[in-house]
Simulated assay, not measured.
Amino acid sequence: MAITDDVIQQAEARMAAARDHAHAVAARYDRRTRRVIVRLHSGLELAIPPHLVEGLDDATPDALAEIEVSPSGLGLHWPQLDTDLYVPALLEGQFGSKQWMARQLGAAGGRSRSQAKSHASRANGAKGGRPRKVQA
């Protein structure tokens, strides 16, 4: 594909539109609070626990401390972890891929306790409960 003046102008227009949205100007890892601190262009600072973000949950403090902010401010990158985070998605509460987020939600749902789950468990227990696992 040839790069023309028109293509460059379109790319610049997309970049200008993206700048109107929230973007990061700095990011760091605070070892004392164990949080990733992201400062947005508006002055707002977000403190994010790493265990909530895909790819950061088992990272060492040294790996978390090395954060790169993309030139557009729309991305954060941890080179040691080969992990990226899209800032607009972060602001919408998306801390990873759809598959990873679904897995987190499913795990939370499995741990939940409700009256319906309790009744279903009792009813299943009255029928003899779960079949025992057989040794292979």
Rank of each mutant, 00 (worst) to 15 (best):
A2G: 14
D5L: 15
D5E: 14
E12D: 14
E12S: 13
A13G: 11
R14L: 15
M15D: 15
A17V: 10
D20W: 12
H21M: 09
A22E: 01
V25L: 09
A26I: 09
A27H: 05
A27T: 05
R28I: 03
R28F: 04
R32K: 10
T33P: 02
T33H: 11
R34E: 13
R34W: 05
I37L: 07
I37D: 03
V38A: 04
V38T: 03
S42P: 03
S42C: 04
S42D: 13
G43N: 11
E45F: 07
E45G: 08
E45L: 02
L46S: 06
A47Q: 15
L52A: 14
L52T: 14
E54L: 04
E54D: 11
E54C: 06
E54P: 04
D58Y: 01
T60C: 07
D62G: 04
A63T: 05
L64E: 01
E68C: 10
E68T: 15
S70V: 03
S70T: 07
S72F: 07
L74W: 06
G75I: 00
G75D: 03
Q80G: 12
L81T: 04
D82M: 09
T83E: 07
D84P: 00
D84Y: 03
P88L: 02
P88F: 01
E92A: 13
G93H: 12
G93K: 10
G96E: 04
G96I: 04
S97T: 12
S97N: 10
K98D: 14
W100N: 02
M101W: 04
R103N: 09
Q104S: 08
L105F: 11
L105Y: 12
L105I: 12
A107W: 12
A108R: 13
G109W: 13
A116H: 06
